[in-house]
Design a protein around this nucleic acid. Structure first.
Lengths: 165, 165
DNA sequence: GAGAATCCTCAACCTCGCTCGAAGTCGAGC
DNA sequence: GCTCGACTTCGAGCGAGGTTGAGGATTCTC
């Protein structure tokens, strides 16, 4: 293989391999302002090794269901100019902490009520914690949809009376 | 407003209002085989009240990040012909239990390591629980992407040595 | 039975997070 | 100095989960 030399900088292929993220995705991230690169005289991308950590942070955040735009905003808090210190990274990741706590709480509640709640008739979209993701980021699953609070109006109280099973 | 009569069946507008889900989404669910309806002589949809619970279940499941196709498969386990009993619902929701447990575990781990891990250099896409969603459903956030195990090859060990901050 | 509100279908479009392919350039190794 | 793989840009396409709008039919209420 070509490009085998050990260098301080990474080509896009190397970054891709080492991060497990496809080159196309990396270019996409760059277009979206999540990472940056310098260009060689021949217009090829070269990444600082630090970018590896940035990409890792992006993937972790994505696993949390956080959209790229928001991740970009968080990354913007990192110092530009110097390489981020552990403290810098800690500050950035602190951002997700609240979300994370809320999510855990929500899921735990959900787990503890799931079967009972769905079957028993209390599954009211109005009251039930299951259906109302609360103020956390609500992840909304795939698609361009994140739940907002306006959802879930009056719903199911009648259903309880009218279809008792 | 027209259509104000109290009926055993629901029009799509009524179902929409009571479930907090837009009519367009309900039609989409129907096309996707998640719910069904009978048609009036004039070709309008009429929903059994039970459908309200189905829609609630769909929304709850979506909040879990479960794709519609999978929700459809789960709903297919409900008895056809008769109205589902609480036990039927319990069985169906039991399906998500494992996912749910795994997710909670994963998020808790993540929370407890987040800042430290990202800053300290251990943020290796290879080893770190943060980056590796495990065998749970991995939610993947929006987009047609769900993480698979093949991701995240060798990554960051060098980075630890080479850029100590 | 008129009018208004709601409903129908169908096709087009939307966002997000990418991937793929074409057509062409760069650069490391022999 | 050639070759071959890795890179470049650009535009199209995809899949999930929908929304929007046109053009027309139905249904409830008065």
């Amino acid at each position: 293989m070509a490009h085998g030399t050990i260098s301080r900088e990474l080509t896009i292929g190397q970054l891709a391999e080492r991060s497990g993220v496809a080159p196309s995705a990396l270019r996409f991230y760059e277009d979206s302002g999540l990472i940056d690169s310098r260009r060689t005289s021949g217009n090829q991308r070269r990444y600082r090794r630090e970018t590896l950590r940035r990409v890792a942070f992006i993937r972790v955040s994505q696993n949390l269901g956080i959209p790229l735009a928001e991740i970009r905003d968080a990354l913007a808090l990192l110092p530009n100019g110097r390489t981020p210190t552990p403290e810098d990274w800690a500050a950035v990741s602190e951002r997700w902490r609240g979300d994370l706590d809320a999510r855990i709480h929500q899921l735990t509640q959900l787990r503890d009520h799931l079967s009972g709640c769905i079957g028993c008739g209390c599954l009211s979209l109005r009251d039930c914690a299951l259906a109302n993701p609360g103020d956390a980021l609500a992840e909304g699953g795939p698609g361009a949809r994140r739940l907002t609070r306006r959802e879930a109006a009056a719903t199911d109280d009648e259903a309880q009376r009218e279809e008792p099973n």
